[in-house]
Design a binder for these strands. Structure first.
Lengths: 345, 345
DNA sequence: GAAAATTAAACAATCGATTGCGTTAAATTG
DNA sequence: CAATTTAACGCAATCGATTGTTTAATTTTC
């Protein structure tokens, strides 16, 4: 069955014997329309159930009130909270959210970027996929002066807005904490090194070791492709079966950290006495696992809100695309729980 | 700075000395355009980086390829997986997803529904909020023959599509399982009773008791407003301090179930020996908590995909809005873990 | 070779809201 | 009271893609 056609300002105009332009202006309290007319029009609009056609308005104005969001996987704790923050801040200002996920596949990411562009979003917020090395698919936005905000996983050199946490310092502090707890041989579960977040976390880790006079042992650094629990289990097993196993592990995410804890327990290794573990993200599971996982807070909702603010700021002020990457760095803090708290420390 | 205006079919037409209509048809391989022309047009479009303006097309066709999604909170495991399923199925068919969350506030839900309507979505997928009792804000869609799919938390009597699981049977089976494990006094953490899911779960629980010759003890049924972990803790404490505490708890969600487990452990009560616990949803935390939580699978991704299919089916076939609620009921299954497995059972 | 049929492309209206400019009538001014 | 403002509203173009209807050119048919 055909979709019924909707009630428009033309219908309203005909009904009230006004011109469509008067209706349009009346509905938005234009000063050149009399109070009386405005009242009449609004009343009739209400009665007839008039609803504006945003598509038409966007087309005419050449600007939608829709923000595109491009992420890897919606159903991950950090991402879903990020989106939640984006949505809250956006809907408060009357903006909509168009969402697309790449499932960490580069081809999808490119296609999604194109789709969002075609939908004429007024700005785009993106967190890069694991496979992403080139970011040409974001240039179309910049060319049209549509603001791009990269969040969390950001490219190295793209003239845009970025919203990140200080991964380096967070990792440095996490590692230092392990050292303070008496760990001498600290392993690291690193993520894909072409992504800034994992690169920075690794650097923070190595620098903390060096600062404390501990030599970096490459055999203790396990670089993973996806930081999945399977990879975490494999890595933990391998590490612990080595001649000189570690007494601490700093994991680049909570998934692998929890996996490490479960694996260690299965092996009968005491946490944190024999091996202390610290993760990253503060996912819900981190406070449930036993012993509870020490980790680094990741202010997802706040980051999301900030992303939206960046977009709105650009759109409302009609700023030009930043000439350089304009970074916002949010604070994180260590969350110390049982998995890294040694009784005698 | 102003947004640059984009390259349109008019620009292309001028450049190639064709009319805009020819360009439009050529781009979609219309039969009345010669192969040669099609090739020329497509080549030029590619070179010039032409991108269609979906807003214009949608306006003209009076139908967007955008599906609206209205949920309570994006950052909840079930919801985010649901959205993930919706998105995957939609993007595969070239449809976009517009998301809005109500934060379980009725006023927001109404506003979001309105916003999605104004955006001219081609269909809407919704899961009702805790406060929602009236669903008039969805009637505008039906009136325009825009398909509405309610998922999980669905209204009792709305002529639309619904995608649900068989909460009654799942609850019945979960409760029966506890009985089989030797539980005699089974408590129930119930959710808001105006929502079908919680109502059905409660009914499944009571019917299982009755079927097994166990009297329903109202004092063992705790009805919660939001099924939060705080409520779970309070309820658990209260129950266990009563004269005749329960020896089993069937919780309407995993959040309260995990909360119950943690509280019981804190009280020094053995799980499952003294109290067996079973939850609902199979959230990630359920397999991490110790003892691991028995629960009911909730096929979130699959449900999301099905929701999208319902929308597309309607839109593509131009079906009329269903005269009655057209239900899709998905299977769930018990996931038996340690929290309900008694050694001697 | 003229009429009919087919092919290829142009014309022009349309979707609904917006807005610069023009018009009319009422109000103000000197 | 004529001249000028001001107030209130209408006209018509515009945004970009789509599509029913024509038109023009080419091919086929007898």
């Amino acid at each position: 069955m055909e979709k019924k056609k909707s009630f428009t300002i033309y219908d309203l105009a005909r009904k009230l014997n006004y011109s469509p332009s008067t209706i349009s202006r009346a509905l938005k309290n234009h000063h050149s329309i009399s109070e009386k007319t405005i009242k009449i029009v609004k009343k009739a609009a209400e009665e007839e159930g008039y609803r504006p056609n945003i598509l038409a308005a966007s087309l005419r104005n050449n600007q939608s009130k829709t923000i595109g969001v491009l992420v890897t996987r919606i159903n991950r704790p950090f991402i879903s909270s990020l989106i939640s923050g984006i949505e809250n801040a956006a809907s408060k200002e009357g903006y909509n959210i168009l969402i697309s996920q790449s499932n960490d596949i580069y081809k999808n990411e490119v296609a999604s970027a194109k789709a969002l562009f075609d939908s004429r979003v007024c700005g785009i917020i993106a967190s890069l996929g694991m496979e992403t090395e080139s970011i040409n698919h974001f240039k179309q936005f910049s060319k049209m002066n549509i603001p791009v905000v990269f969040v969390d996983r950001v490219p190295a050199d793209f003239k845009s807005y970025t919203v990140v946490i200080d991964n380096y310092t967070a990792a440095f502090n996490a590692t230092t904490h392990l050292i303070e707890q008496g760990c001498k041989r600290i392993a690291h579960f690193a993520g894909a090194q072409h992504l800034n977040v994992y690169q920075d976390r690794k650097k923070g880790y190595t620098d903390a070791l060096i600062e404390n006079g501990i030599a970096v042992d490459e055999s203790l650094i396990i670089t993973m492709k996806t930081l999945s629990s399977e990879e975490g289990e494999t890595a933990t097993t391998r590490l612990m079966q080595a001649a000189t196993p570690p007494d601490g592990i700093f994991c680049s995410n909570d998934t692998t950290a929890v996996s490490a804890i479960l694996t260690l327990k299965k092996m009968g290794i005491k946490i944190p006495e024999e091996v202390a573990v610290i993760g990253f993200n503060d996912d819900p599971i981190s406070s449930i696992v036993e012993p509870a996982l020490s980790t680094v807070s990741h202010p997802a909702i706040e980051m999301g809100e900030l992303c939206t603010q960046r977009i709105l700021q650009h759109v409302l002020k009609k700023d030009d695309t930043p000439k350089i990457a304009e970074r916002s760095v949010l604070d994180t803090h260590l969350i110390i729980r049982a998995s890294s708290t040694r009784k005698n420390a």
